[in-house]
Amino acid sequence: MSDKIVIVNKNGEEEEVELVTYLNTRDNMNQYIVYTKNEKQPNGDIVIYISKLIDEDGQKKIIEINDEEEWKSVQSLLKEIANA
């Protein structure tokens, strides 16, 4: 069910992580990827990471979400799915 993706940083270093899902805002203007490095808490909870996806010249690029309002909006999208 899961797939590996590779995140390449600005130094060209690659990190393999596991894609969990995608998020789209309702207006389809913003898209995010949700991924995990399978890091688990002692109680079994799992850490997931969310980055914003930018499509430039057909290449998939990501940036971190620094805007707090946007971060809240992304959490809201996650809750819709995870608490359904």
Partner: peptide, 27 residues
């Protein structure tokens, strides 16, 4: 499957329960 990180900012993460994780995966 390659995603190119455009900034040097640290990743932001959230801790979720296993059942929530499963729902996200299923979506």
């Amino acid at each position: 499957n390659k995603f190119y990180k455009q900034d040097d900012d640290k990743k932001r993460g959230i801790i979720v329960r296993e059942d929530q994780f499963m729902k996200l995966s299923l979506s």
